[in-house]
């Protein structure tokens, strides 16, 4: 018998706590692990048991949800973070992805799409909007893979962080193409497109972690 996907909700507004909890309860495959109203509570939950999926609202009263995502990405390899956003276009989504989030959820999503989103995430799919793709392209064009190098202009011969294929995919996403269409255009399966997107998310997280280490080094913290 399957245990189902365990979900931790980190959200300070009771209305949304209820909304998300209801959506999870309604789905037989999902299991609500707990609801945390503050970052500290969430940390306690995480220390006790690592959820499969953590739904994080960024605007917590005591800390930034991004720190929470980063903590989970670093210490709980089995946990996937799903950031909750109002409109899905703000810079916080990219910051969350860089911190380790592998997807985002619109705050006004209907209950069934909340569950669908979690399932999609577990199945290896990560949603990506054109505006996020644009942000990633603008920011990581020509950036070398290791964060230690200066990001502005990569040295000749250094492989860029994003492969050509990944860049192609992002370009198509930025145009508003669906994964299926992108698969058709690039001659690959929709599933492969999904995998690529997930890989891009992981790369950005690893890269920004390296960059953080690099910056910390620079500042003499490490």
């Amino acid at each position: 018998m399957r245990m189902g996907t365990s979900v931790l909700i980190v959200e300070d507004i009771p209305e949304f706590q209820q909304r998300f909890a209801a959506a999870i309860h309604a789905d037989a495959e999902l299991r609500l692990l707990g609801v945390a109203g503050t970052g500290a509570e969430a940390m306690t939950w995480l220390a006790r048991q690592a959820p499969d999926v953590m739904l994080v609202d960024l605007g917590l009263p005591d800390m930034s949800g991004i720190d929470l995502i980063r903590h989970a990405a670093r210490h709980l390899p089995g946990t996937e973070s799903l950031v909750v956003t109002m409109f899905g276009d703000d810079g916080n989504v990219l910051a969350s992805i860089e911190a380790g989030a592998t997807g985002y959820l619109l705050k006004d999503s209907l209950p069934e799409s909340i569950a669908a989103c979690i399932h999609e995430l577990r199945a290896g799919g990560s949603p990506i909007s054109p505006s996020i793709a644009r942000r990633v392209l603008t920011r990581y064009r020509g950036v070398p893979p290791n964060g230690n190098a200066a990001p502005a202009t990569p040295a000749a011969g250094v492989e860029p962080l994003l492969t050509e294929r990944e860049t192609d995919i992002l370009r198509q996403v930025a145009k508003g193409m669906s994964f299926a269409e992108i698969g058709d255009i690039l001659g690959i399966s929709q599933h492969t497109v999904v995998t690529h997107v997930k890989k891009i998310y992981r790369k950005l997280a690893v890269h920004s972690r390296g960059e953080a280490v690099f910056e910390a080094n620079q500042m003499g913290l490490l």
């Binding site: 409109f87 276009d89 909007s129 054109p130 505006s131 644009r134 930025a174 145009k175 508003g176």
Partner: peptide, 20 residues
């Protein structure tokens, strides 16, 4: 937000967000 979210007034960017 879609109409205002494109930094260089690109209609295609806006339509991409809208379409998505």
């Amino acid at each position: 937000l879609e109409a205002l979210g494109t930094p260089d007034d690109s209609f295609l960017d806006a339509i991409a967000d809208f379409r998505f």
